[in-house]
């Protein structure tokens, strides 16, 4: 075989994304001491876990699964979380916002207030308790403005805080994971994936997801362009008209702040077709909190949010 005449093999975009993510996951494990993968049971973390399994095959996963349970998670997501954790053989550690509230580390405005921001405290506490120096997360740059400028290796100080000006430049794929004591790095291996890439991958790899992602009947209330689910945390307001619709979730976050979309899609291919035809963004359709403040994601990240 002559090296010179050996033309480069062209691989498609999904394979290229997969290999890029595996490279990043291996870099983290090679350079850091104790690595956790944030696993909520959501679709992005399910893809991330699959990529981690591929990265280390045939050897065992050299990382811990960590979930920050807000206490407002859908039970379907939690049972999927436990099932996948058992399958992949890695240790699953759960830390709960409820405990942070009981310890007085977090105070909420009301019992049913969104715990999306509060989980930052529990997360930062869990990192210092368990001594993680690196956390893998399933955030994507296409999700949100503040994410578009996020590094793949996002450097955080001992308080978990993100300072946009103190981030390290990342030319080529030369990531710098060196840390001082108590610092940690948040790493986003699927930074360059878009929502549609995630679904193409789920379809191709035949990945299991919580049933919430596929069509099901649910009681909802129409508010603006969003459908608010009727739950004990988001009860109907006086005068609301409750409808039972066929819906699915595009993102599965907290029960108190995530909305489903109307859909009869019952498999990944049908979801891909719907996603290609829709004109509204993932967060725009589903997040009760982001629409209110252009800078809310940036603020949460400064406070230690993922």
């Amino acid at each position: 075989m002559s090296a010179i005449t050996d033309k480069p093999t062209r691989i498609n975009q999904l394979d290229a994304l997969e290999s890029e993510s595996i490279f990043i996951i291996r870099e983290v494990v090679a350079e850091c001491k104790k690595v956790a993968l944030l696993f909520s049971g959501g679709k992005d973390s399910a893809v991330l876990l699959k990529l981690a399994e591929k990265a280390f095959y045939p050897t065992p996963l050299p990382l811990t699964l960590l979930h920050i349970d807000t206490g407002h998670n859908y039970p379907e997501a939690l049972s999927f979380r436990d099932k996948r954790a058992a399958e992949c053989g890695a240790e699953l550690v759960v830390r709960s916002v409820e405990d942070s509230i009981a310890q007085g580390r977090v105070q909420l405005a009301s019992e049913d207030a969104s715990r999306n921001a509060a989980q930052s405290v529990t997360l930062v506490d869990a990192i210092s308790e368990l001594g993680f120096d690196a956390l893998l997360g399933g955030a994507r740059r296409d999700e949100e403005k503040a994410r578009a400028k996020e590094r793949v290796f996002s450097h955080r100080d001992a308080f978990g805080s993100w300072n946009p000006k103190a981030q390290r430049p990342e030319p080529w794929t030369l990531y710098n994971a060196r840390l001082k004591p108590n610092e940690n790095v948040r790493v986003f291996p699927i930074s360059n994936w878009t929502e549609i890439d995630i679904w193409h991958y789920i379809a191709r790899e035949n990945l299991e997801l919580p049933p919430l992602y596929y069509t099901h009947k649910r009681e909802v209330v129409r508010r603006g362009h969003q459908l608010w689910p009727v739950t004990h945390l988001t009860p109907p307001r006086p005068g609301d008209r409750i409808e039972t619709l066929s819906v699915r979730y595009r993102t599965v976050g907290d029960m108190s702040c995530t909305c489903p979309v109307e859909s009869i899609a019952d498999n990944p291919e049908a979801i891909i077709a719907e996603t290609l035809a829709t004109s509204i963004s993932e967060r725009g359709a589903t997040r009760m909190d982001d629409a209110t403040d252009e800078a809310s994601m940036e603020l949460r990240k400064r406070e230690g949010y993922f």
Binding site: D142, K145, A146, K149, P164, S191, E298
Partner: peptide, 22 residues
């Protein structure tokens, strides 16, 4: 392509932003 709050305050762009389309 307007940037982060910190950038808007200072009227400058600090960083490389990544965007995706097909």
């Amino acid at each position: 392509t307007d940037g982060l709050e910190a950038e808007r305050e200072q009227g400058i762009t600090i960083d490389v932003a990544y965007r995706y389309f097909s």
